[in-house]
Simulated assay, not measured.
Amino acid sequence: MAHTEQSIDTLISISGTLASINLALVAILAAKTSIDHVEVAADDFFLFSSLGFLFVVVLGYLAQKNQGSANANRLVSISEWIFSGSLAATVIGAVLMVYSAV
């Protein structure tokens, strides 16, 4: 699959936004007076997914700087995989949050 400059820009933008949202969720969970085991697990999922999204931002930036080289395509592929994993971790964290609220 050919990667365009616009797809890299979109990936960086979305990753930055999702990293911010996940860090806000971590802060909200940390502000609670009592946290059960499920919420601790959700907190960890949100934290690690935010770190993954931040890595995607860095890798996307490096891919933009090295555009046209073989390394750029590899960086974009790696960032897409990390993005997918981080998005899955966010969904798992959200499911755990809903589970703990029920």
Rank of each mutant, 00 (worst) to 15 (best):
Thr17Phe: 03
Val76Ala: 12
Thr33Glu: 13
Phe83Glu: 10
Trp81Tyr: 14
Thr10Gly: 06
Ser13Asn: 11
Ala72Thr: 11
Leu25His: 06
Val38Glu: 12
Ile14Asp: 13
Thr90Gln: 04
Asn71Arg: 10
Ile8Val: 15
Glu39Arg: 13
Ser15Val: 06
Leu62Val: 14
Ile92Gly: 02
Ala63Arg: 04
Ser100Ile: 04
Ile92Thr: 13
Ile78Leu: 13
Arg74Gly: 07
Ala70Cys: 01
Ser7Met: 11
Ala2Arg: 15
Asp44Gln: 11
Thr90Asn: 03
Asn71Ile: 12
Leu59Trp: 09
Phe83Asn: 14
Gly68Gln: 01
Phe48Ser: 12
Gln67Pro: 01
Asn73Gln: 12
Asp9Asn: 13
Gly68Tyr: 01
Thr4Arg: 00
Asp9Phe: 06
Ala94Arg: 03
Ala2Met: 13
Ser49Pro: 08
Ser34Ile: 07
Ala94Asn: 09
Asn66Ser: 08
Ser20Ala: 14
Val26Phe: 04
Ala63Ile: 05
Ala27His: 06
His3Val: 14
Leu96Tyr: 06
Val76Gln: 00
Val58Gln: 10
Ala101Thr: 08
Gly60Tyr: 01
Gly93Trp: 00
His3Asn: 09
Ile8Glu: 03
Val58Cys: 10
Ile92Cys: 09
Ala19Val: 03
Ile78Ser: 14
Leu54Trp: 07
Ser69Lys: 00
Gly16Lys: 04
Val26Ile: 07
Leu18Trp: 09
Ser49Asp: 07
Gly52His: 08
Ser79Val: 05
Ser13Gln: 14
Val38Ile: 15
Asp43Arg: 12
Lys32Ile: 01
Leu62Cys: 10
Leu11His: 03
Gly68Cys: 00
Phe48Lys: 15
Ala72Leu: 03
Val26Leu: 09
Ala31Gly: 03
Met97Lys: 05
Gly16Pro: 11
Val76Cys: 10
Ala63Asn: 02
Leu25Trp: 01
Gly93Ile: 03
Leu29Tyr: 06
Ser84Ala: 15
Glu5His: 10
Val40His: 11
Leu75Trp: 07
Ala70Val: 12
Leu96Pro: 07
Ile35Tyr: 00
Glu39Asp: 08
Leu96Ser: 00
Ala70Trp: 01
Ile35Arg: 00
Ala2Phe: 05
Gln64Arg: 12
His3Gln: 07
Ala89Asp: 11
Leu51Lys: 12
Tyr99Met: 05
Ser50Asn: 05
Val56Glu: 00
Val76Met: 01
